[in-house]
Simulated scan of single mutants.
Amino acid sequence: MSDTTTRALSLLNLLQTHRHWPGSELAERLGVTERTVRRDVERLRELGYRIESTPGVAGGYRLEAGSAVPPLLLNDEEAVAMAIGLRVAAAQRLVGGPETTLTALAKLEQVLPAPLRRRVTALADAVQPTGIRTGEAVSTEVLGELALACRDHERVRFTYTAASGEISHRRVEPYTLAPADRHWYLLCWDVERNDWRTFRVDRVNDILHTRVLFEPRELTPEQVEEFIRVARSWVRTAVETDIVMDLPFDAIREAFGQWGQGATVEDERRTRWPVGGQDFRETMYGMAWVPAGVEYTTDLAEPARSELRETLERMLRALNAAPPPIPSTRK
């Protein structure tokens, strides 16, 4: 960095720390003449900084707000404080526009020296805003790393722990991060599975940046919303069952779209699909989405199995019975 650039940055740092600086004091602090200070002020103005000057004995310089945001200079303590605030805001979703918060966090994290980043991580973990209900703890460092990968279109590897406890190693092309309910979700293209996948960020660990760039696939906002809605539905419920349909796997994906994410191949003509709900009624609703005319079996356990059978038998009796007479209109 040239002496001129270094001096201009030092001048900017001084202007940001005080409301008003006399020209003579700035010259003394920087070890230059007042004429040099004037030239450096002009350089900063050309970079977009609005610096007002007042003439006279009591005159000097002051940094004012302009029409655009110029670059800021932060010392170590200021950078740490800002990074902590952004991490907490991102993890707790304290402000609107989560993408904006993550973008700002990613920019700052990218340039933080390793010692400062470790300090930010330690302090951010100790900061817990009160009065805000959260889901599982989300590593703000992981959020920052994934935000960078989304921004830069860089493939990453990570370890993922499913709700069942199963651990898998993934290689993905991150597309976007989105908050829903009390969780963060990563929507990405799974390279090994050649399909879109959505992961809970609090279950992501050991992120490795591959430095392999990719051209992102196109998705509409509606498609992104659908992916996240499907991911939100994959939680453990009180009543869970698998149904095996007499329908090939590809036909299931075509019929169900993203709602068929949990489906697996049973054999060349049959597909297994998990269904769940808070009680047997919600499970019955899920089973009702099996395409018309497709036969299937289920391993629904007791007592939900008997409760569902009794409900369906009453429904069939009601449908087979003559409809009730239409009440006469009262005068």
Results as ranks from 00 to 15, higher is better:
W189C: 03
W196C: 04
R170S: 10
H169M: 06
R193E: 14
R182W: 11
H169Y: 09
D195M: 09
N194G: 02
S164W: 01
L177D: 07
V201N: 06
A162P: 03
R197F: 03
L177M: 06
H183N: 14
R170I: 05
L177W: 07
C188S: 15
W184Y: 12
G165H: 09
A162N: 06
R170M: 09
G165I: 03
A178C: 11
D206P: 02
R203N: 06
W189P: 01
W184M: 08
A178W: 10
V191P: 02
V204L: 02
G165R: 11
N205M: 06
Y175W: 10
I167K: 08
D181H: 09
G165D: 11
V172L: 08
S164K: 04
T198G: 04
Y175V: 05
W184D: 09
A180D: 13
E166W: 02
E166Y: 00
V191I: 12
R197D: 05
V201T: 04
P174Q: 11
R170K: 14
D195G: 13
L186P: 01
L208R: 07
N205T: 11
V201M: 10
N194H: 14
R197Y: 04
A180K: 05
P179I: 05
D181F: 00
D181Q: 11
L186V: 00
A162H: 06
T176N: 07
D181I: 07
R200K: 05
H183C: 14
E166P: 03
D195F: 00
Y175Q: 15
W196I: 07
D195S: 14
H183L: 14
I167P: 01
A163Y: 02
Y185D: 08
Y175N: 14
Y185M: 11
P174R: 09
V201F: 10
A178Y: 10
D206W: 00
H169G: 11
R193F: 08
W184H: 14
I167V: 15
V191S: 12
R197I: 03
S168G: 10
V172C: 09
P179Q: 07
E166A: 13
W189M: 09
E192G: 05
T198M: 06
R171E: 15
I207Y: 02
S168V: 11
R171N: 13
H183S: 15
D181R: 10
N205E: 15
A180R: 10
N205R: 13
C188Y: 00
L177T: 02
N205I: 00
I207N: 01
R193S: 12
A180S: 15
R182Y: 13
D202N: 10
E192A: 13
W184N: 04
E192V: 04
R197W: 03
H169T: 15
V204W: 06
S164E: 11
H169C: 11
R171Q: 13
H183Y: 12
W189S: 05
L177Y: 11
P179Y: 08
R203P: 03
I167S: 03
L177F: 10
A180L: 08
E166R: 09
H183D: 14
W184F: 12
A180W: 00
R170C: 09
E166C: 02
E192F: 02
L208P: 00
N194A: 13
P174K: 04
R171V: 05
L177Q: 05
R203Q: 08
A162E: 10
V172Y: 06
D206E: 14
R203W: 02
R171S: 13
